[in-house]
Design a protein around this nucleic acid. Structure first.
Length: 471
DNA sequence: TGGCTATTTAT
DNA sequence: TAAATAGCC
């Protein structure tokens, strides 16, 4: 019997995987394929590659339990899928729907390639709640989150997720690479995440259950407190498709919550922000590379390599910024509010182009996501889809005082300051003399601030205002 | 999903 | 006189 090829991409799971469910329902032997895309994934950052390695390992294991082999191939996806189809005479090629310009192109090419044959190619929505083309205003995409969100959730919401297929007919053994030969894990620092995360569908569900039972109730407040484990931390699981947003949504409702609960609403809204990033990427395919608002196209940006390095390594002399950047390097993850904070600092106070920040996040985040990363950086740089544009500039000192009042988070990641009292820790440069009695000499034990916050803020406002005026 | 500052309002 | 609000960037 002719087999079905299921091409896994960012849907590395068995349940709520519509492509896999469809394959199982056809009753034909199934080939589970993962292609390491050398056009694209070779540029993935080390943290994401680490995650991908473990996620594939977990997927292979889950498939194994169903008697299926995960076929690993490396190269250009279209070439590989075409070859595999010829090798096996497959009758169906099914995959999770793709939303970036490159991915959509892959899907279209694949469909076109087989359009004159009897081979059925079909894509499924495995990663979003809403299809981006279904939520429009006067046939145009929404340009601001809140009206889009209101519209999106105003319709009928039926996010039932599908259970993992109970039985899938396996196809006979076919040649596969081994995961180890792909060498996704850097020998130098690749194991630093081993004890911090559990990639894979089971790890994602476990974290979700923890979130649902312990965190969702107070999520609206706790998610901003940096020292607390108050966020869902589901971003890498969602990015690699180890759990789906539909699954999250339905489980929240099954547990008796809804958009009417504060914590649940806040969480579902965050799923909404992820969703809106994909929405923007779909409607504006150049989002990762071009200013969404083009009025800033000719703005001059800082070329200071030293400033960029200080930001990347957490040596700016602004405790909250340094804590966040060091935490990112050590854990592969950062709070959303801190992503906004360090992004605001880099693009506004230091005057660096958002692409510099985006590139660093791509390199270091375990959840590095083309849609969320691009939408987020453009949003904070003021060139993105936002009702309030350039003048949204975060003050790291007041953010620190508001959301880490005791300085616990700062002390965790900036141990130089561990004996400094809360009153001085948020803006140590204002208390240089007093710090000495707590073992900190500025410029020696901890850097002087890279910039004056007030002045660099004003300079950013002036810089941006000039280009708004010109437009 | 900001912040600053002047102004008004509640004690 | 502190807290809430408005208007601006």
């Amino acid at each position: 019997m002719r087999p079905t090829i299921v091409w896994f991409r960012r849907d590395l799971r068995l349940s709520d995987n519509l492509a896999l469910a469809e394959a199982a329902s056809l009753g034909k032997p199934v080939i589970a394929l993962y292609v390491y895309d050398t056009n694209e994934e070779a540029h993935m950052g080390g943290a994401s590659q680490w995650w991908l390695h473990h996620s594939l390992k977990a997927l292979a294991k889950s498939l194994q339990e169903k008697g299926l082999q995960l076929v690993l191939r490396r190269g250009d996806p279209l070439t590989i899928i075409t070859q595999l189809q010829q090798e096996t005479n497959a009758s169906h090629i099914l995959w999770g729907r793709l939303y970036s310009a490159y991915e959509r192109q892959l899907g279209e090419k694949l469909k076109k390639h087989f359009s004159d044959s009897d081979i059925i190619t079909s894509s499924f929505n495995n990663s979003l709640l809403f299809e981006p083309w279904t939520v429009l205003k006067d046939n145009e995409p929404y340009k601001v989150f809140t009206p889009w969100w209101k519209k999106a959730i105003s319709g009928e919401i039926d996010f039932k997720y599908t259970k993992a297929p109970s039985s899938i007919k396996p196809y006979k053994n076919i040649a596969s690479d081994t995961l180890n030969e792909w060498q996704l894990i850097s020998p130098h620092w690749g194991h630093k995440f081993d004890d911090q995360w559990t990639p894979g569908e089971q790890g994602g569900k476990k974290r979700f259950n923890f979130f649902l039972h312990h965190l969702i109730e107070n999520y609206a407040k706790d998610r901003d407190l940096f020292a607390k484990d108050g966020t869902s931390k589901l971003s890498p699981h969602l990015h690699f498709g180890e759990i789906s947003p539909r699954y999250c949504w339905q489980r929240v409702y099954d547990a008796g919550y809804s958009l009417k609960n504060k914590g649940a609403e806040s969480f579902l809204r965050e799923l909404g922000w992820r969703e809106y990033s994909y929405y923007l990427l779909y409607h504006f395919p150049t989002l990762p590379t071009e200013n969404w608002r083009d009025i800033y196209n000719n703005m001059p940006w800082s070329q200071s390599k030293a400033d960029l390095k200080a930001w990347q390594t957490g040596q700016t002399g602004i405790p909250l910024i340094d804590a966040a950047m060091r935490a990112l390097w050590a854990t592969g993850w950062m709070h959303n509010r801190l992503r906004m904070g360090v992004g605001s600092f880099l693009t506004k106070n230091l005057g660096h182009h958002w692409k510099k920040g985006l590139a660093w996040f791509d390199d270091t985040l375990v959840d590095a996501d083309e849609a969320s990363n691009a939408a987020g950086w453009q949003w904070i740089a003021g060139s993105g889809a936002d009702a309030a544009p350039y003048f949204r500039i975060f003050n790291p000192t007041s953010q620190s005082e508001k959301f880490d009042p005791e300085g616990t988070y700062i002390k965790q990641w900036v141990p130089e300051l561990q004996h400094v009292p809360a009153a001085y820790i948020h803006a140590p440069w204002e208390h240089a003399e007093k710090l000495k009695s707590y073992g900190v000499e500025l410029g020696k034990d901890y850097p002087h601030p890279l910039v004056d916050l007030k002045r660099s803020r004003q300079e950013a406002l002036d810089r941006y205002a000039e280009f708004v005026k010109k437009a």
